[in-house]
Write a protein that binds this DNA or RNA. Structure first.
Length: 829
RNA sequence: GCUCCAGUGGCGGAAUCGGUAGACGCGUUGGACUUAAAAUCCAAUCGGGGUUCACCCUCGGUGCCAGUUCAAGUCUGGCCUGGAGCACCA
């Protein structure tokens, strides 16, 4: 065995060996239980960054560990390859997006292989390939049939310079990420998925996700934004038969209404405006339209509004109050109209103060009543000025008052969600075409399933400005109607890339199927994903959409489970010098350089070493070198032993062992147990790695204490310890472990070995350290035999010189014994 | 403003159940080997104080203030700071 560790040589050799022998291919059929380990698939941007390295290393170690534990592990990889960067590259350099994407995939695949990741490449999926997007389109049609895909007029983020809509993520501080011009709101007819139909299920099923962090679950719950309240309908005094409905979470304050606000875009606003107020209202609405979303939603902006001139009547007390329009009412939420109770709502209060609208207190803290002249009272209290409800607690009044409205026929209980339907249309070329045609006779017609995929045209001009390149195709637009056969035009929009990524994990179960999106039996076998690993930035969008897709496809009968991801690990960011690695800051580290200088095993070891996976990880060059040195240290230990014939393949431990040998064997067993527990318990790889080091140090110490040539027992113990170390390290330092394994004389791959099993009776030290406390403070420690009873411990503690001295002349009140650990003597005086 | 997460040496972090705070590493300092350097190895490394001074003793210490307990980094209540997400959502 070579004395020096040459990672580059070893790593290349084993990577090609594994590929040749299909070590990581996963059969569908196996006697072993299944385990699906999944990393969030990357966008092929060009090169891997350290965030990718961290993500994929974490999942890879999990996959290898589970495989060694006897699971049939599915560990696939793919490419989220539709999206804007490819199209932008095309616009900038005249490159073909498909070619640009393919080249990036090829390069990044090479990098992934250099990292030694155990993927089953037979199951690779690429969302921009027709064999994948055919099924994205097919799934769109299934949702359409179910009424879950529909078209409507909606406001979108519009960049006039680029002539296209932008995703919310592409709007940075209200400006286009590419050309920096201000983003406007525009009304366009767009395709939506009816995710709101699933709002309650998406919220409720969060409770089932024990394997998800609370942070992600609460983020989703907030996003869904369930609230419970009431709808009240108010008659308009000036217009016979007209009503304005409002949604409120504070029905208890209904007697305190002093005005009502409708959104500037409210559908009946023109009818509700008197001729005298028409000009002012029109002007206000025109201004609101011009305003950007950011301006309008800024919370510190002074609230503005104008009166409409009409009034409503409060059915609870007969009071009249004026109608206003103000942009703090949002047309998309609730009914688009707000009943304003300035005394008990801070926004209404600000508005009322500015326009001198009246205040009427209806909730009070009986101990400390407020007139609400300076600030709204939003806490709980008791009703006043509320007729028969006076004296009732406001929490109870919510129900009683709503019930009165229900009985009177002017209101009802209402549950409201903040979640909006998912806008999936993009006026973009590089995406999956929406498989729909427009026929003058038949209207909106879905494409026939046998005509899928609707192929992306290639005869497009990317240099066009102000419209989607797809519209320049001569061959794409005109088609025939699937129903009547007459002339028709294709939908020119493509789907949001989040649609493609909402089902890719299902496709891995049956990636090569050309007849179906996936076989039902296979998808039910492999899914849900046992462990999903990825960045926290996907906490809402991707994970919520995927959950929605799973539920919708379940309702389409395509699969039989409710939730796609059983366990979720959101890994922290990779930082350098305390801030996120980014090109603009110039603090990036190129994975290629690390592979070249230290090897992939060092990179893998280091990226797992210093922080637990969920926390941010601070990259340091010294840390990398430290890991490299550690691998050299392990290599030297074993190569030295192998070359001196002290370590052999066929070792046997014959008990009882000498004291020193027994101690080392115990340390090995303790390490096996500890490492297994650390991985099983939230994947604490940082402590796993510290245990590798402890074990290595212990073996070195033991070896240093052996004098002269090793005897047989020592050789066996040395072989056991080093072979165990290398097996424990094999999921992390995959190439080095394999090389050493073969140097030891084994012929199979270490990655197909069984995980270490420890002997419970040996997984503890032969001596324990007894801690003796007096009044909870440590006063003495001593070594005692492992088998002592509690009574023995007590007697030992009380008879030590030191304790006698401390307790002399004092009354011992009681003695607490923690078995095999500690004695606490409580004294008085 | 609301929600969630976090706060431990010079630094990253460790500490299943409440039971030895600071594992392991980085850095630093000293030493060995060497003509020298690199590499490697050994030792020290929370703070204050004491001392019969290289062996100990003692006090304090896990963001802050209380509480529960024989015992609190860990549990409870109230704050402070930092991070993340949401936000005129009625």
């Amino acid at each position: 065995m070579k004395e020096a560790y040459f990672p580059q040589e070893i790593e290349k050799k084993w990577q090609s060996e594994w590929e040749k022998n299909n070590v990581f291919q996963t059969p569908d059929n196996s006697d072993k239980p299944k385990y699906f380990a999944l990393s969030m698939f990357p966008y092929p941007s060009g090169k891997l960054h350290m965030g990718h390295v961290r993500n994929y290393t974490i999942t890879d170690v999990i996959a290898r560990f589970k495989k060694m534990q006897g699971y049939n592990v599915l560990h696939p990889m793919g490419w989220d390859s539709f999206g804007l960067p490819a199209e932008n590259a095309a616009m900038k350099h005249g490159a073909d997006p498909a070619k640009w994407t393919d080249e990036n995939i090829a390069y990044m695949t090479k990098q992934l292989k250099m990292l030694g990741l155990s993927y089953d490449w037979q199951r690779e999926v690429t969302t921009c390939k027709p064999d994948y997007y055919k099924w994205t389109q097919w799934l769109f049609l299934q949702l359409y049939k179910k009424g879950l895909a529909y078209k409507k007029e909606a406001a979108v983020n519009w960049c006039e310079t680029c002539g296209t809509v932008l995703a919310n993520e592409q709007v940075i501080d209200g400006k286009c990420w590419r050309c920096d011009s201000v983003v406007e709101k525009k009304y366009l007819s767009q395709w939506f998925f009816k995710i709101t139909d699933y709002a309650e299920q998406l919220l409720k099923d969060l409770d089932k996700l024990d394997g998800w962090g609370d942070n992600v679950k609460t983020m989703q719950a907030n996003w869904i934004g369930k609230s419970q309240g009431a709808i009240f309908r108010f008659k308009v005094k000036e217009i016979e038969g007209m009503e304005v409905p409002v949604y409120t979470t504070r029905p208890d304050t209904v007697h305190g209404i002093t005005y009502l606000v409708v959104a500037p875009e409210y559908k009946d606003i023109e009818k509700l405006t008197t001729p005298e107020n028409k000009n002012a209202v029109e002007e206000y609405r025109a201004n609101a339209r011009k305003m950007t979303e950011i301006e309008r939603l800024s919370t510190d902006r002074v609230k503005t509004g104008v009166p409409l001139g009409t009034h409503c009547i409060n059915p609870f007390n007969g009071e009249e109050f004026p109608l206003w329009t103000a942009d703090y009412a949002l047309v998309e939420y609730g009914t688009g109209a707000v009943m304003a109770v300035p005394t008990h709502d801070t926004r209404d209060f600000d508005f009322a103060k500015k326009y001198n609208l009246p205040l009427k207190v209806v909730i009070q803290d009986p101990q400390n009543p407020s007139d609400c002249k300076d600030v709204a009272y939003t806490e709980e209290g008791v009703l006043v000025n509320s007729n028969e409800f006076n004296g009732m607690k406001n929490t109870e009044a919510k129900k009683a008052i709503t019930q009165k409205a229900v009985d009177g026929g002017f209101g009802e209980f209402k549950t409201q969600y903040r979640l909006r339907d998912w806008l999936i249309s993009r006026q973009r070329y590089w995406g999956a075409p929406i498989p729909v045609v427009y026929c003058d006779k038949c209207g909106i017609v879905p494409e026939k399933e046998e005509n899928l995929p609707v192929m992306l045209p290639t005869d497009v001009d990317f240099s066009v400005v102000g419209k989607s390149p797809i519209t320049t195709s001569k061959t794409f637009k005109d088609t025939t109607c699937p129903v009547c056969g007459g002339p028709a035009t294709r939908e020119m929009d493509t789907m949001d890339t989040f649609v493609c990524s909402s089902w890719y994990y299902l496709r891995y179960s049956d990636a090569k199927n050309s007849e179906k999106c996936f076989d039902k039996e296979k998808v039910n076998h492999w899914l849900p994903v046992d462990q999903y690993v990825g960045g926290i930035e996907h906490a809402i969008l991707h994970l919520l959409y995927s959950r929605f897709f799973t539920k919708a496809l379940r309702d389409c009968g395509l699969l039989d489970f409710d939730e796609p991801f059983k366990n979720l690990l959101t890994q922290g960011m990779v930082l350098k010098d305390g801030s996120k690695m980014s090109k603009s800051k110039g603090n990036t580290v190129d994975p290629d350089e690390i592979f070249e200088n230290f090897g992939a095993d060092t990179a893998r070891l280091f990226i797992l070493s210093d922080s637990p996976p969920a926390r941010d990880f601070d990259w340091s060059d010294a840390g990398v070198e430290g890991c490299y040195k550690f691998l050299n240290r392990v290599w030297r230990l074993i190569s030295d032993g192998v070359n001196k014939r002290e370590i052999a393949k066929d070792y046997k431990l014959a008990f009882p062992l000498s004291r020193e040998n027994d101690d080392l064997v115990r340390i090995v067993n303790i390490a096996m147990k500890g490492i297994t527990n650390d991985i099983s318990n939230d994947f604490q790889f940082n402590t796993v790695i510290s245990k590798y080091r402890e074990l290595t140090n212990a073996i070195y110490d033991w070896r240093g204490k052996c004098k002269g040539e090793l005897d047989n027992e020592q050789k066996n113990v040395f072989s056991f310890a080093t072979t165990s170390l290398i097996k424990l390290m094999s999921p992390v330092t995959v190439h080095m472990a394999e090389e050493i394994w073969h140097e030891l004389g084994y012929k199979n791959s270490i990655h197909e070995e069984k995980w270490c099993e420890w002997d419970e009776s040996l997984a503890k030290a032969s001596k324990i350290t007894l801690v003796i406390q007096v009044n909870g403070k440590v006063k003495d420690k001593l070594e005692v035999d492992e088998g002592v009873t509690d009574e023995d411990l007590k007697q030992i503690a009380l008879s030590t010189e030191k304790i006698k001295e401390i307790t002399s002349g004092k009354e011992i009140v009681k003695t607490i014994v923690v078995p095999k650990k500690l004695v606490n003597i409580v004294v008085k005086g």
